[in-house]
Design a protein around this nucleic acid. Structure first.
Lengths: 162, 162
DNA sequence: TATTGTTATACTCTATAACTATA
DNA sequence: TATAGTTATAGAGTATAACAATA
């Protein structure tokens, strides 16, 4: 302990991060990691990850959708949604309907168990959002959603400006 | 083409995503994926990923810092920063100083090449941010950074409210 | 020819445990 | 005993290529 006692709390040289905290990409990454961690805690009892909640939500809203349509709606590669749906199907939450007009595709539906779980997830989700609202206010939360949507749309444009 | 001509653009049944677009976690993920993709394009000529820019920035700002200090400042596990610095050192951008007071640790510094590259990266970075500003305005960008920082701080608190 | 689901593969990021050498 | 760097490993997300069945 090279510092004499009685001094105020250690000043901590403080690592200089500039200009990282002023970069949208950096701030987004830090926020996403933090939110995903708390999200995982909030949904730990359900053993459901964010991507799985996304699939359950879209299938619940749009029964009969094809896998590739669900993937596109969520911005996931159609190759990557296969193990995701495998997991949900193995847990009896989602069904790949056998018959279909186009026999290449799978019409997806929630099972009764899937619908029941989705209901509980959405209630928990509402609680989780209100916890975030406690941090930035409902006005701040709405504004954040707007700004994120605008950034996403700008980057996803065919001739993306960024 | 089962649809007669002359009709307005195809209505597209439109997949219902609600309430996903109103969830901060979902909006964050979509925004981060979109921003990282355009970021990668903007920095493609430098072959530098976001995490690498973070390390170069922190080492440039704080020469002599230990690996574990850089990792903590960036929110990276100290085990995961090893290959990151390996890569930067192999390219001659960062040096692990041989000698030190504590011979367990590595004092990190940028090489001349690293400093030169970091300068170019930061100029490109400023351009990139101004492209994002074109999408949401400078006021929107500042507000977005504030909101993201508030969310991050709230989630990272020991007794995180979310 | 094109599309759907699928498999295989690769790379990045994140996380944990355990080792080593120093302290 | 504690810490810094390291190694190994595992899991999730993302991405591309290619194949079989079907259209």
């Amino acid at each position: 302990m090279p510092r004499p006692a009685l001094l105020p709390p250690p000043p901590e040289p403080a690592v200089r991060l500039d200009p990282l905290p002023d970069m949208v990409g950096y701030a987004l990454r830090r926020a996403q990691v933090a939110v995903f961690r708390t999200f995982s805690k909030a949904f730990a009892e359900f053993d459901v990850r964010p991507a799985q909640l996304g699939v359950l939500t879209v299938v619940g809203n749009n029964p009969g959708l094809k896998q590739s349509e669900v993937a596109e709606a969520l911005g996931i590669q159609r190759a990557n949604i296969v193990p995701l749906i495998d997991g949900l199907a193995a847990r009896g939450l989602v069904e790949r309907a056998k018959a279909a007009v186009d026999r290449r595709s799978h019409a997806l539906r929630l099972t009764d168990a899937g619908r029941e779980l989705l209901g509980r997830l959405q209630r928990r989700e509402a609680e989780y959002e209100s916890q975030l609202t406690a941090a930035i206010g409902e006005t701040g939360r709405r504004r954040l959603l707007e700004l994120l949507a605008a950034i996403t749309a700008a980057c996803d444009e065919p001739s993306e400006p960024a």
